[in-house]
Write a protein that binds this DNA or RNA. Structure first.
Lengths: 175, 175
DNA sequence: TAAGTCATGTAAAAAGTTACATGATTCT
DNA sequence: AGAATCATGTAACTTTTTACATGACTTA
């Protein structure tokens, strides 16, 4: 719904937006999205308009309703109950003492590289946002500011993760 | 299994260890743990010994087998496939533009406070580990080092999260 | 006397993933 | 010719959570 509040989308587009735009902190497959859209529609939070297309299958363009936007605004400011974070890499680190140090350090080097790549990508996007959205970013009431805020979270997360992986790999190599 | 590799435990103790020791990066309730222990036992990765107690219910003390330790060591150095991270707080931030800025900033201040508290707790434990485990922490082949490594991850995670929440709350208040 | 700890399980429900199913167009 | 994109759904399966179920002892 956070995505539909910004622009009307088809289920298909929603699926790719989830992956591309909010993938680092939320995930959902199309098999989850289509039933969820139907459910949200039955609750009055979204509506759809059928759009016929030539040369492509017909599609259903979903948009958020006033009730949906109100529910979203309400939900966004209610404290989240602490759900369990699950990080398999950290879980592996907890049993690393039992593993082969060479394989382990290689694994963490690789993990570090991936986080640094992601970091570089976010840094690019951040630069783009600051150039393109200059004005909007001064106002927390714009979707642009919200996007920028979550991006900053991703940036910090990846930086911290990469640094930790690097430190751990260093420690394993200097044994 | 990562916990059982360190010390034999009952299902009940395992449940509390999961919460207390690895809670920030992994979660499991007792209703998941008991069947899982039975499954691991049928696969030969753990065994249990019944222990009769006076004044308390009898218990089953589980320990890891050689096969279990080998499987754990193997698993620990195999790259984790990137499972979906799910962070409801960041998801909320993505729709913050639609919410009441005052409620939103209060929520993020509160979130910040919680992360700072957790950070302080981890800092205490870190100090304790560095004092108590001085020797073991120089050797990545010890369980102590692994515990220390995951704690450092928690520390970095909480610090970054708290800082981001603070930045976001500041931004919302300076609107 | 009420709440908390120790102790182990099962059942039902919710959530999420993987696989099944189809089909035209466009790009390589 | 094969892969990718657009497009929407369902079914089976796995995982996880919440609730049900029991019971003695200890502490406030």
């Amino acid at each position: 719904m956070g995505l539909l509040a910004r622009e009307p989308l088809t289920g298909y587009e929603l699926t790719s937006r989830v992956r591309e735009r909010i993938g680092f902190f939320w995930g959902a497959r199309h098999s989850q999205i289509y039933p969820e859209l139907a459910k949200l529609e039955s609750e009055g939070f979204v509506t759809h308009e059928p759009v016929a297309q030539e040369g492509k299958p017909d599609k259903k363009v979903y948009s958020i309703t006033n009730a949906g936007l109100a529910a979203l605004a309400e939900w966004a400011a209610v404290p989240a109950k602490p759900g369990p974070t699950r990080d398999e890499v950290t879980l592996k680190a907890y049993s690393l003492w039992a593993a082969d140090p060479e394989k382990a350090s290689a694994m963490f080097r690789d993990e570090e590289r991936r986080h640094r790549e992601q970091l570089a990508e976010y840094e690019q996007i951040k630069g783009w946002m600051e150039r393109e959205w200059e004005q909007a970013l001064t106002d927390p009431g714009t979707p642009e500011f919200s996007s920028y805020a979550t991006l900053r979270r991703g940036l910090g997360y990846e930086r911290e993760y990469a640094e930790w992986c690097g430190w751990l790999a260093d420690s394993l190599e200097r044994r």
